Computed example of a mutant assay.
Amino acid sequence: MGSRRNFLEKLTVSAVGLPLLYHSNPLFAASEAPYQGPVLKVAIMGLGSYGTRVAEAMKDCKRAKLVGVISGTPSKIKDWQAKYDIPKKNCYNYENFDAIKDNKDIDAVYVITPNGLHKDQSIRVAKAGKHVICEKPMAVNADEAQEMVDACKAAKVHLLIGYRMHYEPKTVEVIKMRQNGEFGKVKFFQGQSGFTIGDPSQWRLNKELAGGGAMMDIGIYSINGARYMLGEEPIWVTAQETKTDPIKFKEGVDETIQFQLGFPSGAVANCLSTYNMSHLDRFFMTGSEGWVEMQPSTGYGPIKGRTHKGELNQSHTTHQTLQMDGMSQLIFEGVQPIVPLDGEEGLKDMKIIDAIYEAAETGEKVAISL
């Protein structure tokens, strides 16, 4: 009888607690009260594989909506119109997209074209009075990035860079742990970013379009990761380049670069960027009181990680969905992510990349001033 009475008492308490659980749990609250606030109306420029990934992710956005496209391929525009229900009046090509200036149905343009095109296209979007979202790296060097920052300031529009990891839940948790001192004095970061690239004719291996090689595409993850994991800005860099296939990786297109960053606190980062080794997507950081390892650390799928306290178990949501909803909240409400993703943030990474290339070429330690 005692066991049965205890069971009924627990059941009653649980039932009483259900309304509280329902109203306090954000998952229940989300289903109970659909989002009614402003929605960022976005046109995607560049309808390649990553543009498609963003478009698919935006189907689940509550604060952002895909409403337009800009492409140099008429057949792609037609396919996207049908697939994403995009009106013809919101479809443009690379010659006429300045006309978005008069289109009130578009708030922002997400530039997802080859790196070498980012500067001119982003500046044209800004001059048309639309917010600019630009995929990383934001340009091919720091000078171009500065031009973009200046143009968007002059046009009084936002310039945001596609740093999806700044919204990724496990990444955010690690940054919070570091901010709360849970790792103690952080001393060392290691970033490994690489894969074996395929088709030698693709734009990523074209110096004019890519601005470089692996560093511009995958190495930037370790650069940005070192900065947000350590919570500091680097003050010097050394770097070494290795090239085993000069036919595939022509002059100015890096295959593999190892680089080391020094920080004001004395912390150091040791990183690898490569197009010639696969299964490299790992961050490790250690401090006086603890450590964290993330692998995969920046891939599109679920991020996995563990610390001295155990596994990171935050739930996975498609990164681009979180990014686009977060950017909408930033633009309309001024809500900033835990790490900035504005043009100035992208400019810092470009300055570091410039310094890495200089260090690899000269063999000297290069000072960094951000």
Rank of each mutant, 00 (worst) to 15 (best):
Ser3Pro: 05
Arg5Gly: 00
Leu11Ile: 13
Thr12Gly: 11
Gly17Asp: 12
Leu27Asn: 13
Pro34Met: 13
Met45Pro: 06
Arg53Asp: 12
Met58Arg: 06
Lys59Pro: 05
Asp60Gln: 11
Lys76Ala: 14
Lys78Ala: 15
Gln81His: 14
Gln81Phe: 15
Tyr84Leu: 08
Pro87Leu: 14
Tyr92Gln: 00
Asn93Asp: 14
Asn96Gly: 00
Asn96Arg: 00
Asp98Gly: 10
Ala99Arg: 09
Lys101His: 12
Asp102Gln: 10
Lys104His: 13
Asp105Asn: 12
Asp107Asn: 13
Ala108Asp: 07
Ile112Glu: 06
Gln121Val: 12
Ile123Thr: 05
Lys127Ala: 11
Val140Phe: 09
Val149Glu: 07
Asp150Arg: 00
Lys153Met: 07
Ala154Ile: 04
Ala155Gln: 08
Lys156Ser: 10
Ile161Ala: 06
Arg164Ile: 12
Arg164Lys: 09
Pro169Tyr: 10
Val174Ala: 10
Ile175Ala: 09
Arg178Asn: 11
Gly181Tyr: 10
Lys187Asn: 11
Ser193Ala: 14
Ile197Leu: 05
Asp199Lys: 11
Pro200Lys: 08
Gln202His: 10
Ile218Leu: 12
Glu233Phe: 13
Thr238Ser: 10
Ala239Pro: 04
Glu241His: 00
Thr242Ala: 08
Thr244Tyr: 05
Glu251Pro: 07
Asp254Phe: 00
Ile257Ala: 06
Leu272Gln: 03
Leu280Thr: 01
Gly287His: 00
Trp291Glu: 03
Gly299Glu: 08
Gly301Asn: 07
Lys304Asn: 04
Arg306Lys: 13
Lys309Thr: 09
His316Glu: 06
Asp325Lys: 06
Leu330Ser: 04
Glu333Trp: 03
Gly334Arg: 02
Gly346Trp: 06
Lys348Thr: 09
Asp349Arg: 05
Met350Lys: 06
Glu358Tyr: 02
Thr362Lys: 04
Gly363Gln: 05
Val366Glu: 03
Ser369Asp: 07
